[in-house]
Simulated assay, not measured.
Amino acid sequence: MGSVLLANRLFQKGNYKKKSRLVVFDCDGTLVDSAYAIISCMQTACSNLGHLQPKKVDIRRTVGLPLDEAITILLPSIKINQINGVKNEFNKLYAMLKGRNKIHEPLYCGVEETLCSLKKAGWLLGVATGKSSNVLKSTLENQNIDRYFITLQTADLSVGKPDPDMLLKAMRDTGAEKKRTVMIGDTSYDMKMARNAGTSAIGVTWGYHSVEELYDSGAHSVVKTFSQIPLALENLFKK
């Protein structure tokens, strides 16, 4: 059953409390370490089409953005009619790696334990990511954590970060109010999306942007380990 449909049915049946609390996680750099596959596919796609190969550090900084926007940043001189070519080449290479079982996207330490704890505590959980819907579904299923999430928002079906569209849709799916919604992510794009949506935001240190960038972009707090998230949420709602 689709996440939106399931959320709507539960909400209509009264299974969501009027004061539902929602946590929306970024995926790449927050739930899973996907840097290797993204960097490899982006560098190879650019080289295959005759473009200058972007540096690894620059690619890491664009993780979380819609793919076409990331390409524009990484290849500032690229022509508009060339963007789709790089995008299609990236997707082809990614699919090839996946078909060969070469996609290595391990969960960060403490992810599943914390998701389980939050769900038991009554939090509604969601994901908002620059991945496509098919890729996100595959990633969550492969890591056996798809069962924790009630709403999934992806860049191919929404406006990408830092636009608030995905976060606003997650709130509509679940009936959660802005003041009871928290975005958790590793980049300034996640923090800005939360700020643009009017929600709270918690940054994480193990991803792609610095602590300073997270705070400057609107993070209310920053955690160093996944296991610190429940306490950070508790402290956030005490304020």
Results as ranks from 00 to 15, higher is better:
residue 174 T to N: 08
residue 171 M to E: 08
residue 174 T to S: 07
residue 198 G to K: 04
residue 214 L to C: 12
residue 176 A to V: 06
residue 166 M to A: 09
residue 166 M to L: 10
residue 164 P to W: 04
residue 205 T to F: 06
residue 199 T to A: 11
residue 206 W to K: 12
residue 169 K to W: 02
residue 189 Y to L: 07
residue 174 T to W: 01
residue 211 V to D: 13
residue 201 A to P: 06
residue 172 R to D: 10
residue 173 D to A: 14
residue 207 G to M: 10
residue 190 D to E: 06
residue 166 M to N: 00
residue 198 G to T: 07
residue 193 M to I: 06
residue 184 I to F: 07
residue 218 G to N: 06
residue 217 S to E: 02
residue 209 H to Y: 08
residue 218 G to R: 03
residue 195 R to Q: 12
residue 183 M to A: 08
residue 196 N to I: 09
residue 184 I to A: 12
residue 175 G to R: 08
residue 183 M to H: 11
residue 200 S to V: 06
residue 195 R to Y: 12
residue 212 E to I: 13
residue 185 G to R: 01
residue 167 L to K: 00
residue 187 T to D: 03
residue 201 A to Y: 04
residue 207 G to L: 03
residue 161 K to F: 11
residue 215 Y to Q: 10
residue 201 A to R: 11
residue 188 S to T: 12
residue 178 K to D: 04
residue 192 K to C: 05
residue 209 H to V: 07
residue 161 K to Q: 04
residue 182 V to A: 08
residue 162 P to D: 09
residue 185 G to P: 05
residue 181 T to P: 00
residue 192 K to I: 14
residue 199 T to R: 08
residue 165 D to P: 07
residue 201 A to G: 12
residue 170 A to H: 02
residue 199 T to N: 04
residue 206 W to M: 09
residue 208 Y to H: 15
residue 168 L to N: 13
residue 173 D to S: 14
residue 212 E to K: 15
residue 180 R to I: 04
residue 173 D to M: 05
residue 181 T to S: 14
residue 216 D to H: 09
residue 200 S to H: 15
residue 170 A to W: 00
residue 185 G to W: 00
residue 170 A to I: 05
residue 179 K to V: 09
residue 191 M to V: 14
residue 179 K to W: 07
residue 170 A to Y: 02
residue 169 K to I: 05
residue 216 D to L: 13
residue 166 M to S: 01
residue 212 E to D: 14
residue 183 M to R: 09
residue 207 G to H: 12
residue 192 K to M: 15
residue 178 K to F: 04
residue 187 T to K: 05
residue 208 Y to N: 15
residue 191 M to D: 02
residue 176 A to D: 08
residue 209 H to T: 10
residue 184 I to S: 03
residue 178 K to C: 11
residue 169 K to T: 06
residue 211 V to K: 15
residue 201 A to F: 02
residue 217 S to R: 03
residue 186 D to S: 05
residue 172 R to K: 14
residue 192 K to N: 08
residue 183 M to T: 07
residue 213 E to A: 14
residue 217 S to W: 01
residue 197 A to P: 05
residue 165 D to V: 07
residue 210 S to R: 09
residue 217 S to N: 11
residue 193 M to W: 02
residue 204 V to S: 01
residue 198 G to A: 08
residue 208 Y to I: 10
residue 189 Y to H: 15
residue 167 L to F: 08
residue 208 Y to P: 02
residue 207 G to I: 02
residue 209 H to G: 04
residue 191 M to R: 13
residue 185 G to Q: 06
residue 215 Y to W: 13
residue 217 S to C: 07
residue 186 D to F: 00
residue 186 D to A: 00
residue 180 R to F: 13
residue 205 T to A: 11
residue 199 T to W: 03
residue 207 G to K: 11
residue 171 M to N: 11
residue 188 S to R: 11
residue 199 T to S: 13
residue 161 K to L: 01
residue 161 K to S: 01
residue 189 Y to F: 15
residue 205 T to S: 15
residue 178 K to G: 07
